[in-house]
């Protein structure tokens, strides 16, 4: 499986003005079983990039291909997990998880079996018949993960999925996500504005500049998992990524005068 993004740009039209360039010439290749984070300050277009890949928005120019096939609309090869709670409150947990399978006309029985398998994976099998409002924020996002996984996509797109959670829950879910990822070996594209989260989770970190979003640098993260957030190696990568972000927040002239170090 290879996802190739080439020269992708996105402009937003503004009435009576020049359009705003949100993403500029993003090129990126994501391989099998990779965990890739897209990191950048707010307004850098990282969510827009993910939405374009998901087929929810369209690019102004550039192309996306998955295994050689052009992706220009929604594809069942990909499933997205949103930042805000996105479960259907009128459906029970298991009926939320079977939603995607219903859309693919899977029979009820096998759909429920698949759903239970993924609810087990996220540790919520016993909550199958509950309603979302009975669940905590962290549990809801686990259900959202199970719902996305249930359609067995090749790529999971995650848009700051833990952004609304408290720090403790967030750390716990990051750990669980890695466990799930190691079991299922899906490719994950993970949008975040948290340097710590990106370094903890990913194989590679795509650091974007502020608007318009360009790729500032792609940071390789070779640390073995489980990662120790307090180790010097972790701190070194973290520092490097932070420097990239701080530098790119400076006016553009600075960027030209001081080329990236390391």
């Amino acid at each position: 499986m290879t996802l190739i993004i080439q020269d992708l740009s996105k402009e937003f039209p503004v009435p009576n003005q020049a359009p705003i360039l949100s993403l500029s010439k993003i090129s990126l290749t994501v391989g099998e079983e990779e965990f890739v984070s897209i990191l950048g300050p707010s307004g850098c277009g990282k969510t827009t990039l993910l939405r374009i890949i998901a087929g929810l928005d369209s690019a102004t120019s550039g192309s996306i291909t998955l295994d050689g096939e052009t992706i220009d609309r929604r594809s069942s090869q990909m499933a997205m997990i949103f930042q805000e709670y996105s479960l259907y409150p009128w459906r029970t947990v298991i009926d939320n998880v079977t939603f995607g399978l219903e859309m693919q006309n899977t029979a009820k029985r096998p759909a429920r079996d698949t759903a239970m398998k993924y609810l087990n994976l996220v540790g919520l099998a016993e909550f199958a018949e509950r309603f979302p409002y009975e669940l905590s924020g962290g549990m809801r996002q686990r259900v959202a993960v199970a719902r996305a996984m249930a359609i067995e996509p090749k790529i999971l797109l995650m848009d700051e999925p833990f952004g609304a959670l408290d720090a403790q829950t967030r750390n716990m879910l990051q750990k669980e996500l890695l466990e799930i990822w190691e079991k299922t070996k899906k490719t994950v594209l993970f949008v975040t504005h948290s340097v710590d989260e990106a370094v903890y989770l990913s194989d590679r970190i795509i650091v974007l500049t502020p608007r318009p979003g360009r790729i500032r640098e792609i940071v390789e993260n070779p640390l073995a998992r489980p990662r120790d957030r307090t180790s010097p190696e972790f701190a070194r990568i973290r520092r490097h990524v932070l420097d990239l972000i701080n530098e790119s927040s400076q006016p553009k002239e600075d960027l030209i005068v001081h080329p990236p170090s390391l």
């Binding site: 998901a54 087929g55 929810l56 929604r74 069942s76 990909m78 499933a79 997205m80 949103f82 805000e84 996105s86 259907y88 939603f99 995607g100 859309m103 693919q104 719902r147 996305a148 359609i151 797109l157």
Partner: peptide, 10 residues
């Protein structure tokens, strides 16, 4: 988001 979830799920 509810609509978009549905759309991404096919």
């Amino acid at each position: 988001t509810w609509v978009e979830v549905a759309e991404t799920l096919g």
